[in-house]
C-alpha cells in the first residue's frame, strides 16, 4: 500500500464576514500565522493519510470546511499551517464548468479544458467520442454552437465528462452528483464505480448519506474546527447523526 495523500497538522484561517481587509502591509510582513481579531480558524490540526485506492468521504455540518479541505488537497488553496503532500495527479470535480469559455464552441472547449488539465491533443482526439457520448445526445447535437447557449444541465454534463476522462489516479468530488437529471445521475454513479474498480483513490464531499455509504469505505468527520473522527464510513455517519440528535 502506498500513501498518496499525507496531511499533517493542517489548518486554515479565514476572515469573519465583513472584516476581510487586512492591510497588504500586514499580509506581506507577518511571519506565519498570527492570531489577529477578525479571523477564525476553519479547522486546525487535521492529520490523516490516504492510501492508494481508498474511498474517503468527508462528513460534517455546513461551514466546517469540508470543501476547503478538498480544495487544499486539490492544491487550489494553501493551508496556513501544516502541510499536505499529494504524490499523484488529481482530477478535481470541483468547479466543473470553470474552464469553459462561453464564446467558444463546445468542441473547442473540450480540447482546451482537457489541455489545461494536462491532456495532450492526441489523447483528447482519441477520447473525444467517449466524452461526447457520455455528455449525451443533446450536447452531441450542439457541439459546434457556442458554449454559452448550453443549458446549465448540459454544461455540467460536459464538465463531468471531460474531467472524469482524465487519467489522474486521485479523484476529488464536491457535491457535483446533486446536479443533473436522474438518468445522468445514474450514469455518473456508474462512471464513479468504474473508476473505483480501476483502483483510483476517491475523495467525496457530500451531504447525501446514500452517496457516501454507496461509494466510501472510510469517513472523516469534521466539526467545530477539528477532525473528530476518522474511521469506517458507517461509524462516522452514525457519530454525525448522534451529534445532530443531541443538539436537537
Amino acid at each position: 500500500m502506498t500513501t498518496v495523500i499525507h496531511a499533517e497538522d493542517v489548518g486554515i484561517e479565514f476572515f469573519t464576514s465583513r472584516k476581510r481587509h487586512m492591510s497588504i502591509r500586514e499580509l506581506l510582513f507577518s511571519r506565519g500565522a498570527t492570531h489577529t481579531p477578525g479571523k477564525f480558524w476553519a479547522f486546525r490540526n487535521v492529520t490523516f493519510d490516504v492510501q492508494q485506492g481508498e474511498a474517503v468521504g468527508i462528513v460534517g455540518p455546513n461551514g466546517t470546511g469540508k470543501s476547503t479541505l478538498l480544495k487544499i488537497i486539490a492544491g487550489v488553496m494553501l493551508p496556513d499551517e501544516g502541510h499536505v503532500e499529494v504524490t499523484q495527479g488529481v482530477a478535481p470535480l470541483i468547479e466543473l464548468t470553470g474552464g469553459f469559455k462561453g464564446e467558444l464552441t463546445a468542441r473547442d472547449n473540450i480540447f482546451l479544458t482537457a489541455g489545461l488539465h494536462g491532456l495532450r491533443r492526441e489523447d483528447v482526439e482519441e477520447r473525444f467520442d467517449e466524452i461526447v457520448d457520455f455528455a449525451g445526445p443533446q450536447v452531441k447535437r450542439a457541439l459546434d454552437t457556442p458554449f454559452r447557449h448550453f443549458s446549465s444541465g448540459m454544461k455540467v454534463r460536459l464538465g463531468f465528462a471531460v474531467i472524469t476522462t482524465l487519467d489522474e489516479p486521485i479523484i476529488l468530488v464536491d457535491e457535483v452528483l446533486a446536479v443533473g437529471d436522474r438518468a445522468f445521475r445514474n450514469q455518473c454513479y456508474a462512471r464513479m464505480e468504474a473508476l473505483l474498480a480501476e483502483g483510483r483513490t476517491l475523495f467525496l464531499v457530500s451531504h447525501s448519506e446514500k452517496d457516501l455509504s454507496r461509494f466510501c469505505t472510510r469517513g472523516l468527520y469534521l466539526t467545530g474546527g477539528r477532525l473528530v473522527l476518522d474511521g469506517p464510513i458507517k461509524d462516522t455517519l452514525e457519530c454525525y447523526a448522534m451529534d445532530i440528535e443531541r443538539k436537537a
Partner: peptide
C-alpha cells in the same frame, strides 16, 4: 478566477 480556483497550476 473560476479557472484559478479549479486547477492546481
Amino acid at each position: 478566477s473560476k479557472l484559478v480556483r479549479s486547477t492546481s497550476l
